[in-house]
Computed example of a mutant assay.
Amino acid sequence: MIIIGEKINGTIPVVKEAIEKRDAAFIADRAIKQTEAGASFIDVCASTAPEHEVETLKWLINVVQDAVDTPLCIDSPNPRAIEAVFKYVSKPGMINSISEEGDKCEVLLPLMEGNTWEVVGLTCDNNGIPNDLATKISITMNMVEKAAKYGITPDRIHIDPCVMALSTENQSMLNFAEEIRAIKALYPSIHVTGAISNISFGLPVRPLLNKTAMAFAIQAGMDSAVMDPLNREMMGTIFATYALMGQDKHCRKYSKAFRAGQIGPAGK
């Protein structure tokens, strides 16, 4: 599982406060702990006022790069902000994100030409997030075709089918699993990602739904996730699911994760 660590995001109150105070030690500690927990990428999202976003992203990038060697995932709804800070990232990472909304593909995909950067692609367009599989597949195909013009192969793309909340769409998980399978069938080497916790919005005991949804999604073919790598229960679900699916020979990765303290009761 490719884990995109989500804990450096200005929408989180304690992170917002650290950003406002320019508390580099707090941000660095979050980066280090996520790396130690197994994050493949560290997401950095400023979520500040537009006029301050580029400056804040640049600061976050510098702090995290000084703290860890883990590749960064540069996260902003504004493609121009990502474009502005791109040159400050010391090694290839991930862009979060493109879609068929506005000119995101046109601004961001050229940045990935001739290097090994990866990108998250959201299945949405100027009409928002579609509810039907056919439209999501069409959006995916359009993004893949645009990426190909810059030499970007499907294995560098992480498609996010945008899972809907179960509280508003009773078939949400079943639809998400169908979307994952359809995307992987069309592009076997492409990655499928998502913020699986969206599934439980508005419902009680959210961790229970999130863990179960993660197992469903992995079985359907999801191999990337925006999540908290310090969440031992979710990490345990990931390792257990791969083991139960027969994709962890002799359960070595599961056992190694337990010995390393990534899964199981705290302190074990």
Score class of each variant (00 low, 15 high):
99 S>T: 12
100 E>L: 15
101 E>V: 07
102 G>F: 13
103 D>I: 10
103 D>W: 12
104 K>H: 13
105 C>W: 02
107 V>W: 03
108 L>T: 08
109 L>G: 01
109 L>A: 02
110 P>M: 02
113 E>K: 13
114 G>W: 00
115 N>Y: 07
115 N>T: 11
115 N>R: 12
116 T>L: 01
116 T>K: 04
118 E>R: 11
119 V>H: 00
119 V>T: 08
120 V>N: 09
120 V>A: 01
123 T>Q: 06
123 T>W: 01
124 C>Y: 00
124 C>G: 04
126 N>E: 10
126 N>L: 07
127 N>T: 14
127 N>W: 10
128 G>A: 03
128 G>V: 02
131 N>Y: 10
134 A>Q: 14
134 A>V: 12
135 T>E: 03
135 T>K: 02
140 T>Y: 07
142 N>W: 04
143 M>N: 11
145 E>N: 15
146 K>L: 02
147 A>V: 02
147 A>R: 00
149 K>M: 02
151 G>Y: 03
151 G>N: 10
151 G>V: 10
151 G>K: 09
153 T>D: 12
154 P>M: 01
154 P>S: 06
156 R>C: 03
156 R>D: 04
157 I>L: 00
157 I>K: 01
160 D>S: 15
165 A>D: 09
167 S>Q: 11
168 T>W: 00
169 E>A: 10
170 N>H: 07
170 N>A: 08
170 N>W: 06
171 Q>K: 12
171 Q>W: 12
172 S>D: 12
174 L>S: 13
174 L>T: 14
177 A>Y: 00
177 A>V: 15
179 E>R: 13
179 E>P: 05
180 I>H: 01
180 I>Q: 01
181 R>K: 04
181 R>N: 02
182 A>E: 15
185 A>N: 14
186 L>C: 11
187 Y>D: 09
187 Y>M: 12
188 P>G: 06
190 I>M: 06
190 I>N: 00
191 H>S: 07
191 H>P: 08
191 H>N: 08
195 A>M: 06
197 S>I: 00
197 S>L: 01
197 S>W: 05
198 N>F: 04
199 I>Q: 01
199 I>R: 00
200 S>T: 04
200 S>A: 15
201 F>R: 04
206 R>F: 09
208 L>M: 14
209 L>F: 07
209 L>C: 04
210 N>F: 09
211 K>W: 02
212 T>C: 03
216 F>S: 02
216 F>Q: 07
217 A>Y: 04
218 I>G: 01
219 Q>L: 05
219 Q>I: 08
220 A>D: 13
226 V>P: 08
227 M>F: 09
228 D>I: 11
229 P>D: 07
229 P>K: 13
229 P>R: 08
231 N>I: 01
231 N>T: 03
232 R>V: 00
232 R>C: 07
233 E>N: 08
233 E>Q: 05
234 M>K: 04
235 M>S: 10
235 M>E: 12
237 T>E: 14
238 I>L: 06
238 I>P: 03
238 I>D: 06
240 A>L: 14
241 T>E: 12
241 T>V: 08
242 Y>A: 15
244 L>Y: 03
244 L>E: 09
